[in-house]
Amino acid sequence: MRELNWATLGCGVIANQLAQALANDDRTLYAVANRTHDKAVAFAERYGIGKVYDHIDDVFDDPAVDVIYISTPHNTHIGFLRKALAAGKHVLCEKSITLNSEELNEAVALASANNVVLAEAMTLYHMPLYKKLHEIIASGRLGELKLIQMNFGSYKEYDMANRFFNRDLAGGAMLDIGVYALSFVRWFMSSTPDQILSQVKFAPTGVDEQAGILLTNPDGQMATVTLSLHAKQPKRGLLSFDKGYVEIYDYPRGERATITWVEDGHTEVIEAGQTDLALSYEVADMEAAIAGDRSIMHMDFTRDVMDMMTLIRRGQWGMTYPEEERSED
């Protein structure tokens, strides 16, 4: 298959990592689109990108573009997804892929109608460590999974205007960091949770600042998730089995896990992949999906996680974003 032309829509931190990931493979982004043209020009000069669009929507009309990586704010995703997918472009979209399940279902239908790959850029689905852990779990050495405990807490300055707390920018802990914790839970659980309880503390702007979530699936596996945007926690995932437990720190891009065996307390360290190559793994899997292996991007898990987030945020907390309120008018 010929080398695919990637374009980035947005030129922030993730776009820089994408450009570096392609450079690791002696490749260059084909094009850059951004709301602020001057930033796009500077980004292109930094990475030797040959094409900068005068208008952000021009990327959708360029027949040379094969794949678009969208890394703009959450609440802008669905608008760009509609245009990209309708134009027949494959799309890798930064998490959270949409605001809610209805938007995601619309995007999935558009991708199917246009026979293109749509995927969420959820790093942990593509890190080699998680694939290796799946092999160990499948071998039966650890026994049955019983419990998952997840922590993710960031300390963000209490500035209600920044994107983390800004309701107009789809702020809040759930869409920003909760999506990682719930994706981890879904990756390891044998089935989708069907019992969900939660508590929330709102920031003054009305977005979720802190939350606790309890989940149980039909197989009796349970998970707890603790999130905060104003209290630092380790990015820690703990998997408890009959015969041992597995700890993973910095789990969104994990490269190392420690198994502690119950019988004698000895530990076993599992290492696979490299944290700084996270975007390289995503790009490789996305291109494999475009080549034919659609399951490798785990849209089934993405949909399950989005359904959980939508249920918790809207159904249990009564928390909505302006875009959702306008759609109801």
Score class of each variant (00 low, 15 high):
2 R>L: 13
7 A>K: 03
9 L>I: 07
13 V>E: 07
23 A>H: 10
24 N>R: 07
35 R>D: 10
35 R>G: 12
44 A>E: 10
48 G>R: 10
50 G>Q: 09
52 V>M: 08
53 Y>G: 04
53 Y>P: 07
65 V>G: 04
68 I>M: 12
69 Y>E: 08
73 P>T: 09
75 N>A: 11
76 T>M: 15
77 H>V: 15
84 A>I: 13
104 L>C: 03
108 V>Q: 03
110 L>C: 04
123 T>D: 09
144 E>M: 07
145 L>Q: 02
155 Y>Q: 14
155 Y>C: 08
162 N>M: 05
162 N>C: 15
164 F>S: 03
164 F>V: 10
164 F>H: 13
172 G>D: 04
174 M>Q: 10
178 G>W: 00
181 A>K: 02
182 L>M: 12
184 F>W: 06
188 F>S: 04
189 M>N: 01
198 S>G: 12
198 S>P: 08
199 Q>H: 09
221 Q>D: 06
225 V>R: 07
229 L>Q: 02
242 D>Y: 09
249 Y>R: 10
250 D>Q: 13
255 E>K: 13
260 T>H: 14
260 T>S: 13
263 E>R: 15
265 G>E: 15
266 H>E: 11
269 V>M: 14
275 T>Q: 15
285 D>P: 00
287 E>H: 06
299 M>P: 00
299 M>E: 05
305 V>M: 04
305 V>P: 01
310 T>F: 05
313 R>M: 11
322 P>G: 05
324 E>G: 10
